Deep mutational scan, measured.
Amino acid sequence: LNLKQAKEEAIKELVDAGIAEKYIKLIANAKTVEGVWTLKDEILTFTV
C-alpha cells in the first residue's frame, strides 16, 4: 500500500464514521503510511 492509497482508505473510513473535516485534514497531511494508520486509529479512538 502506498501513501496515497493509505490516505484514501483512511479518509473513506473517517468519512463513513462521520468524523469532522479538521481531523480528515490531519490524515491528508500525514507523511508516512504508518503515520496515516496511527492518526486514523487515534482519531477513531478519541472521537467516536
Results as ranks from 00 to 15, higher is better:
T38K: 15
W37G: 06
K40R: 15
N2S: 14
N29W: 08
F46Q: 13
T45S: 15
L14G: 00
L3P: 01
D41K: 12
A28N: 13
E8T: 06
D41M: 15
I11V: 08
I27R: 00
N29D: 13
E9M: 15
K40Y: 13
L3W: 01
L14A: 03
K25F: 07
K12Q: 08
A28G: 08
V15S: 10
L3N: 01
G18Q: 05
V48P: 09
A10Y: 01
V36P: 01
E21F: 08
W37P: 00
L44S: 03
L14C: 04
T47L: 15
K7D: 00
A17D: 02
A17C: 05
A10T: 05
Y23P: 00
G18M: 06
A17Q: 07
K22P: 12
I11E: 04
L3K: 01
V36H: 01
T45N: 15
A28D: 13
V36C: 02
T38M: 11
E21M: 11
T45K: 15
A28H: 15
G35W: 08
K40H: 07
E9G: 05
G18L: 04
E21L: 10
E21P: 11
K25V: 13
A17M: 12
K31S: 14
T47Y: 14
T32F: 02
V15M: 15
W37Y: 11
V33A: 06
E21G: 07
K40C: 06
A6T: 04
A30W: 01
A28C: 08
K31R: 07
E42R: 15
I43D: 00
E21N: 07
I27W: 01
A10K: 00
F46T: 12
V33K: 04
G18R: 05
I27V: 09
Y23S: 02
V15G: 05
L3C: 02
E13Q: 13
G35A: 15
V33E: 04
K12S: 06
Q5I: 12
L39K: 04
A30V: 08
D41Y: 14
T45P: 04
T47F: 15
I43G: 02
A20R: 05
K4T: 10
L44V: 06
V33T: 05
D41Q: 13
K22D: 09
D16G: 10
K22C: 09
L26G: 03
A28W: 14
G18V: 02
L3V: 06
L44M: 10
V48W: 08
A30T: 04
L1F: 12
L14Q: 00
I27N: 00
L14I: 03
L14R: 00
E9N: 10
T38I: 14
W37E: 08
V33R: 02
Y23N: 02
E34D: 08
T38R: 15
E8W: 09
A30N: 01
W37A: 10
K25E: 11
I24G: 02
V36Q: 01
Y23E: 03
I27K: 01
T38Y: 12
A17V: 05
K22M: 11
K25L: 14
E8V: 09
E34M: 09
N2E: 14
L44N: 03
I19T: 05
V33I: 11
G18S: 04
L44E: 03
I19L: 06
I19Y: 07
E34F: 06
E21Y: 11
I24N: 02
W37R: 12
V15P: 00
N2P: 09
N29Y: 12
N2I: 12
A17I: 07
K7W: 03
T47G: 14
T45Q: 14
E13Y: 09
T45Y: 12
T32V: 02
D16H: 13
L39A: 05
E34W: 07
E21C: 06
G35E: 15
L26T: 04
E42W: 15
I11H: 03
T47R: 08
E34Y: 07
I27T: 00
A20D: 14
L39I: 11
D41C: 09
Q5S: 08
T38Q: 15
E42K: 14
N29Q: 12
V48F: 12
T32D: 08
I19E: 01
L1V: 11
E9D: 10
G35V: 09
T32M: 02
A17S: 06
T32L: 02
T32H: 04
T32I: 01
E9R: 10
K40I: 06
G35Q: 15
Y23F: 15
Q5V: 08
E9V: 12
A20H: 11
T47K: 09
K31V: 13
D16R: 14
L1K: 12
I11M: 10
K7T: 03
I43N: 00
I19G: 02
K40T: 06
G35C: 13
K22Q: 09
L26A: 06
A28Q: 15
V48I: 11
K22A: 10
I43E: 01
T45W: 13
K22S: 09
N2A: 14
V15H: 10
E34L: 09
V48K: 07
E9W: 12
L3D: 01
K12L: 07
L1H: 11
Q5H: 10
K12C: 05
K4E: 15
I11T: 06
A28I: 14
L1N: 10
V33C: 05
I11F: 03
E8C: 08
I43M: 06
A20C: 06
K31Y: 08
E21R: 07
I24M: 05
K12D: 03
A30M: 09
T45M: 14
F46W: 15
N29G: 11
L44D: 02
E9C: 06
V48N: 14
T45H: 14
T45C: 12
K25Q: 13
A28K: 11
A30I: 06
K7A: 04
K31E: 14
A17F: 08
E13N: 05
A30Y: 02
I24V: 07
A20G: 08
Q5R: 11
G35P: 00
E8D: 10
N2D: 14
E34I: 10
K7L: 06
E42G: 04
Q5L: 09
W37N: 13
I43F: 08
V36E: 00
K31H: 10
Y23G: 01
I11P: 00
N29L: 13
T32Q: 02
A6I: 07
K25N: 12
L3R: 00
I27G: 00
A30E: 09
W37Q: 13
I11C: 05
I24F: 09
L26K: 05
K12A: 08
A20Q: 10
E13A: 12
I19W: 04
L14K: 00
L44G: 02
A6N: 03
V15T: 12
E13F: 09
L3Q: 01
K25G: 08
V36L: 05
G35I: 10
E13I: 13
T45G: 15
T45D: 09
K25A: 13
A30S: 07
K7I: 10
D16P: 02
N2K: 15
E21S: 09
A6C: 05
W37D: 06
